[in-house]
C-alpha cells in the first residue's frame, strides 16, 4: 500500500503537469464583420446556401447578411419589425439546396422563408393551439420536404412542418431523459437524415432518426475536454465528425461520428478560444463558420490537413 501511495505521489503531479487536450489544428481564414455601412451585432447562426453563399443572422440588427464564398459582402435583407420579411431578434438559420433561406424569427414567433436573393417567400407561424412556441433554430431534412424547428421554453420540443407550413409532427417533450429536452436550440441534419439537437440545459447534443426516435447523445456535462457546459451550436463536417460549440467555455469540440470525443479545435498548437461561439456550419470545403456573438463577427476556420 505504501508502495502504491509512493508511486501515486511520484506520478500524479507529473501527469497533471502534462495534462492537455488533444487538438485538431485549424487555420483562421477570415472574419465576417458586417457591411461597409454597419457592423455585425451579435451574430447567432450561419448557413451555407445555393451557390455556396454564406448567410449570417445579424441578430442585433434584426437582419440577415449574405456573403459570397470568398467573404465578400453581397447584400442584406430583413429589418426590425413584424411585417412580412421583417425580423425581430432572429436566432437560427438554415438554407436548402433549392435556394430557400429559412430564419427562426424568435421575437415574432415564426419562421420566415426567403429566396436565395433575400426576397420574402413565406411565413410559418409557430403558434400551435394555445402554445406560443419560441423558435430558436430551423433545419431542413435531406429530402427538403420537412422543416424542423426547435421550440424553446416553455415548449421544449421539436416541431416538424411540411413545406406548406402545416405542422405535421412534434418530437420530444420537456425533461432530461433521452428524447427529452431542456431548451432545445441549434439543429443540424446529417447526410443520413439524422437530426442533431443541442439540448442546452441538459448540456448535450441529442441525435434523433428521421422518425424522431432517440438514437444517441453527444457530449455531457463538465468542463474537461469532451464535456459541455453551455453547448450552443452544432455542425457536421463532411467526414461526419461532429463539432459542438460551447459559448461559456469558448471552445469548439470535435466528436467522431460514433459520438466519441475526438479533440478540441485548436490553432497554432493551442486551444482556439472563441468569444461566445454559438451557431456554426461547415461548407463543402470543410470551412467552419462560427458565429461569435459578443465578438460581433463570424470566424472562418479551415482544418489544416484539409488544405
Amino acid at each position: 500500500m505504501i508502495l502504491v501511495l509512493l508511486m501515486l505521489f511520484l506520478s500524479t503531479p507529473l501527469l497533471a503537469a502534462e495534462m492537455k487536450a488533444s487538438l485538431v489544428e485549424y487555420r483562421k481564414v477570415m472574419d465576417l464583420t458586417g457591411t461597409a455601412e454597419s457592423e455585425m451585432v451579435m451574430p447567432t447562426d450561419v448557413a451555407i446556401g445555393k451557390g455556396q453563399r454564406v448567410y449570417v443572422v445579424d441578430s442585433g440588427n434584426h437582419r440577415v447578411l449574405a456573403y459570397a464564398a470568398d467573404g465578400s459582402f453581397l447584400f442584406a435583407f430583413g429589418s426590425k419589425g413584424s411585417g412580412a420579411g421583417q425580423l425581430d431578434s432572429p436566432v437560427g438559420i438554415a438554407a436548402s439546396r433549392d435556394g430557400r433561406v429559412l430564419v427562426a424569427d424568435r421575437g415574432n414567433r415564426r419562421v420566415q422563408i426567403f429566396d436565395s436573393d433575400g426576397a420574402f417567400l413565406k411565413t410559418i407561424t409557430t403558434i400551435l393551439g394555445d402554445a406560443e412556441v419560441v423558435p430558436v433554430d430551423v433545419a431542413v431534412d435531406q429530402a427538403e420536404k420537412r422543416i424542423f424547428v426547435s421550440g424553446s421554453a416553455p415548449y421544449h420540443r421539436l416541431l416538424i412542418f411540411d413545406n406548406s407550413g402545416k405542422a405535421i409532427g412534434i418530437w420530444g417533450k420537456p425533461g432530461n431523459n433521452f428524447g427529452e429536452f431542456r431548451y432545445p436550440a441549434a439543429l443540424a441534419v446529417s447526410k443520413d437524415d439524422e437530426t442533431y439537437i443541442v439540448d442546452v440545459f441538459n448540456t448535450r447534443v441529442q441525435v434523433l432518426n428521421d422518425k424522431g426516435e432517440y438514437l444517441v447523445t453527444v457530449g455531457s456535462w463538465g468542463v474537461t475536454p469532451g464535456h459541455l457546459f453551455r453547448p450552443k451550436g452544432v455542425a457536421i463536417e463532411n467526414d461526419d465528425q461532429i463539432l459542438v460549440s460551447d459559448s461559456y467555455l469558448g471552445v469548439i469540440q470535435i466528436y467522431n461520428s460514433d459520438t466519441r470525443f475526438h479533440a478540441v479545435l485548436g490553432t497554432n498548437g493551442e486551444i482556439a478560444r472563441f468569444d461566445t461561439p454559438a451557431g456554426m456550419t461547415v461548407d463543402k470545403r470543410d470551412r467552419l463558420y462560427v458565429a461569435e456573438m459578443l465578438a460581433n463577427k463570424v470566424s472562418v476556420f479551415q482544418p489544416v490537413q484539409a488544405q
Binding site: 447567432t44 419560441v134 453551455r230 459559448s247 461566445t276 454559438a278
Partner: peptide
C-alpha cells in the same frame, strides 16, 4: 448571464 440569455435559451 449571457450564456443563458443569448437567445438560444432565454433571450
Amino acid at each position: 448571464c449571457f450564456s443563458c440569455h443569448d437567445g438560444f435559451a432565454l433571450d
